[in-house]
């Protein structure tokens, strides 16, 4: 693939990328295919943040078992993100509250942000991609 060539061309430019995850897993493909973009972006040595709001917070819950619906369980990938130097994981407090979730319900360590904190973080990004 030409991805390796691209990395040489872009050497030195580091932009702030936020991946905003607003959709639940499995019902649609966006969470799974979105995660693939996140991993590639990290391989380009960019400043990557992942934000989880609305139903996107459901991507991170413990106890996911996809055997019965015969689709890939990609939730394990979130635990591997640290290996890709993706350590900025943010969740929206209001979205968590609206779904009866707390940090203890999630499979990875996250930073819980207020609406204002999340909004300001989003506003300071160079690129926001929402899945």
């Amino acid at each position: 693939m030409s991805d390796m060539d691209d990395m040489d061309d872009d050497a030195g430019i580091v932009k702030k990328f936020m991946f905003l995850n607003r959709k639940a897993p499995h019902g649609t493909v966006y969470a799974l295919e979105g995660l693939e973009v996140v991993l590639i972006t990290a391989a380009f040595d960019q400043d990557v943040s992942m934000a989880f709001t609305d139903d996107g917070v459901y991507q991170l819950v413990k106890g996911i078992d996809t055997k019965g619906i015969e689709v890939k369980d990609f939730s394990k990938t979130y635990r591997a993100l640290e290996g890709y130097d993706i350590e900025k994981l943010y969740v929206d407090q209001v979205s968590m509250d609206a779904r009866g979730l707390s940090e203890d319900d999630l499979i990875v360590d996250v930073t819980v942000l207020s609406v204002d904190e999340m909004a300001n973080l989003m506003a300071e990004q160079d690129v926001v991609i929402s899945f």
Binding site: D3, D6, D10, F17, I40, Q46, D126
Partner: peptide, 10 residues
């Protein structure tokens, strides 16, 4: 590849 998308962002 997806690198072409990331490159647009960069």
């Amino acid at each position: 590849g997806l690198g072409q998308l990331v490159e647009m962002g960069i």
